[in-house]
Design a protein around this nucleic acid. Structure first.
Lengths: 218, 218, 218, 218
DNA sequence: GATGAATGAGGCTTCATTCAT
DNA sequence: GATGAATGAAGCCTCATTCAT
């Protein structure tokens, strides 16, 4: 667990993991609802069912608590993609699965995604860098799918970093603009019309044929 | 000016506008750099060259100050689009101009755009609603351009609200992910490959011909 | 006018009197309602229809404003007694009239009386002394009536200072405990049963006869 | 303890009582000397030997602190009367003891009594009502003594609420006008001539005989 | 390891007072 | 004389953090 980058005064590492999970679970909804600045350590402790003093045995300061929360969110998202690709061989299908997994987890954790956009800047540069690195690692999972499709000849050659970012950003748009998007389009249609469209327009003829085949059994 | 929705204890409306501009100019960079919560009224007053007490004659509380800043940002952006369309008749050109104007102002005010994403939630619901309304009004300017292109037959029929939002969001992605995008693509290319692409893929044959003509003289 | 003990930067003494009356009229109700500390100079100025700056041309500071208000209240009360005795010769009747006049003015200015009890201590010692002196002068008016009744033989010899104070205090009890007294007794009965009773119990036989005569024509 | 109507963030109720007593002991003299508005929380904390922040763990805001002080004063006074009646059976003696106990405690807490008159209005209506209720409960203790004397035939029938209030008010007059009364009469004489006189004038013949008997052994 | 009372620095806000116009 | 914008000192209150138990 990367959480360990944050120092704890408690030795027992199993306990550290458990307590931190407890704190994260309490803190994220509070941070989401009221923002980092308006949430007090006492609030978090109360919801977590522990004392304020305990928090400081698992986290060095309030900012650390925010950091492990954001890290937790980013890691959850990232974990989802490999899980969705487990056993899937077809390159195009892998791309589709990766994107849809990411979209679904992001839509489910809508408010947590928002939180990362709102509060990352509240962290110290070192922590910000770590989160950025994690984001790029997540992007890389999708880039790999794209690259494979290009290699196989399903997609026209493309800068996969940029294409991946376009898609990732379209994924994030759902949580960020949920207040409006959810009123004018369903999530299902959104995925089709606003996310997959990023790559369907550069399908090669062989890619198109393959895609059509994939769609048929559905 | 909508700013007047925020009450001031000072009568002289010219002075109110001037002072508020002064405060906004001081506050936005501070909010951008340190965030709303970590910026003190005293900081803002000092940078603005006034006393802390004065702030409260032009704004009811700290949150109001944030609001007029965000409103200022949103209004500036919105203002840019009609200005760019001034005298432009060609529907396709109007769409291009609108989007590019919006992109340029957003790229220029990069940090301010970030600020709106970070801090809007710090406001009370009433203020949030007003900012959302402003955002939709800005979107509507682009939607109108799209609708006209569709009407003329340059673009295939399309849900302009959704298309506009895709483009707006692509515009915002530049400031939001500037830390990464600026390293892998130029703004010029970004506009072409990530923003205009949203509509170039649905150009009708006549739209394509017209677009080609527009590009030639450049 | 004693008001002049409070310095003013304005020369024209007629104007000073007029402006101060204006301020006093505005300030007393505000002080009564919210207390001295919670009333701002701006509140007073607004109600008086002048600017905050003007106040400081007729009063040296906020405490001075309170002082001229309390002085005004005390003087009004004091003025009432001689007015009620005008032309009255009969000693017993003078006592009755004096007490009733004082009771009525105190009941009418109920909240102002309360104000003197609440806020006198907010003043500097010098001002407190002046108000105490005024109070004693008011008491002396009643003491004189008592002394005359004793001299004439209507009342048994008595320490008039103490008797007067008992009566004055019974008068003040009405405003101070109005919240309760007004629910259990009428003002008319209160005067009879709680104020006049202080001296009716020490009427001499001749005093009793005389008092009976006074009551008859009524 | 009624103090508990004021919420505290501290759980340990023994500690709450102790700390509040500490705060009350520090605050009352300060409020008496400088008034509520001119006393700062920091002043109180310093005198109490605690940090300013601690105050807010035992009191919700400054007004609450005033309230528990006034409540403490009123309760102390009220407590004194039943204590003085402990074991006293004779109705007339009970009345005398009740009044004298109340007078002595009021004279001893002279400045605190003044404080209740000065600052009760600074409280919110809810708190004012509670204090008024306490005052009436105190009065009721004296009313009961009067009623018993009337029932036994020592006193002529009388409205005991009004008679009690007359006496209570005479008791309060001593602290309120101490600056003057103490110069013209001793407390011992004051009780006799200004307080007991309220009921001695309505003693029945049997009451007079009984009273004479009570005085003899003294 | 856990608790929660205690600390005290620091921010928002108010408002008496001043002074240029 | 009158105005009212500007000042800035000062107070209430919050809350991250500590530490004795």
């Amino acid at each position: 667990m990367m959480d360990f980058q944050v120092k704890s005064s408690v030795e027992d590492s199993v306990l550290v993991v458990r307590r931190r999970a407890q704190l994260i679970e309490a803190a994220i909804p509070l941070f989401c609802k009221s923002g980092y600045a308006n949430t007090t350590i006492k609030d978090v402790a109360t919801v977590a069912g522990v004392s304020p003093g305990l928090v400081y045995q698992y986290v060095q300061d309030k900012q650390d608590l925010l950091f492990i929360c954001l890290l937790h969110i980013v890691q959850c998202n990232k974990r989802e993609i490999p899980a969705a690709l487990e056993g899937v061989k077809d390159p195009l299908l892998r791309l589709i699965r990766a994107v849809e997994a990411y979209t679904h987890i992001s839509a489910t954790n809508r408010k947590a995604i928002l939180l990362t956009y709102r509060e990352t800047k509240s962290l110290k540069p070192e922590y910000i860098s770590m989160l950025k690195r994690m984001e790029l690692e997540t992007n890389a999972l999708i880039e790999a799918c794209i690259d494979e499709c290009v290699r196989i000849g399903y997609l026209a050659p493309v800068n996969s970093q940029i294409l991946a970012y376009r898609m990732v950003f379209a994924v994030h748009a759902w949580p960020l603009k949920h207040w409006r998007l959810s009123k004018i389009i369903s999530l299902r249609d959104y995925i089709e019309e606003c996310i997959h469209i990023c790559w369907t327009t550069i399908l090669t003829p062989s890619g198109k044929r393959h895609y059509a085949k994939l769609l048929k059994p559905t």
